[in-house]
């Protein structure tokens, strides 16, 4: 994570990016402090991979460092000239805060509901739903499933799967995207409610999945 040798022409750190990604997949909490430090790395993609891994590890210790990346607000969250990304990996950061359940981050996440880029709005909706449990945010994601192009629909499907929003099941099954993406989203709904393997809700979702095979 502190490698200085492997550099891209633009100053990126490919080895650190890979390390940050791998640390999340290992599921080892001892990686958290290294990942938190990586949120300060000058390479955007290292910060993004670190936020994604912190989402998987769900350690509240990462909350303050993640929140710091949102402090510039929506006005600071603009594209970097010459790069295909914004100043910070806002989507991954908000999704990590949502997965951690960092309710103290609500006031920092909320303004991003107004961000001009739809996928940033969706990440904010997803995070706000996880942080507040307010159905309105889930419903707004369901609404987004009937708008936009197929690329946008795939993103929203992934968001609904990640938050396990059961009322979306029928809208997911009906949505205008490939069956693979719909199946993955419905799988997310089952996983979020897996404590009881066969409930009325999970049977409802399984029947929808069967029809997508």
């Amino acid at each position: 994570m502190d490698d200085e040798d492997d550099r891209t022409e633009l100053g990126g750190y490919p080895l650190r990016r890979n390390a940050a990604r791998a640390l999340g997949k290992l599921g080892d909490r001892s990686a958290v402090s290294g990942l938190i430090r990586s949120l300060d790395c000058p390479d955007f993609y290292v910060r993004e991979a670190a936020a994604q891994s912190l989402e998987l590890l769900r350690d509240p210790a990462a909350t303050p460092a993640l929140m710091k990346l949102l402090e510039g607000g929506v006005s600071g969250a603009m594209p970097i000239p010459g790069r295909p990304h914004l100043a910070e990996p806002y989507e991954s950061v908000m999704e990590a805060l949502g997965a951690i359940g960092a309710s103290e981050a609500v006031s920092l996440v909320e303004p991003f509901l107004q961000h001009p880029i739809p996928r940033v709005q969706f990440a904010a909706l997803r995070s706000m739903y996880q942080l507040t449990g307010d159905e309105t945010y889930g419903q707004r994601l369901v609404q987004a499933l009937s708008e936009g192009d197929v690329k946008q629909k795939r993103i929203v499907l992934a968001d609904l799967g990640a938050i396990g929003y059961l009322p979306a099941a029928e809208a997911i099954a009906r949505s205008d995207a490939e069956n693979s993406f719909k199946l993955l989203a419905l799988k997310g709904l089952i996983e979020a409610h897996a404590a009881e393997l066969l409930s009325t809700d999970s049977i409802r979702v399984l029947n929808l999945m069967d029809n997508l095979l």
């Binding site: 419905l186 996983e191 897996a194 393997l197 399984l206 999945m209």
Partner: peptide, 11 residues
């Protein structure tokens, strides 16, 4: 390993 598969087996 996947809850969705386990749930489908249960069904």
């Amino acid at each position: 390993a996947d809850a969705a598969v386990r749930a489908r087996v249960a069904l």
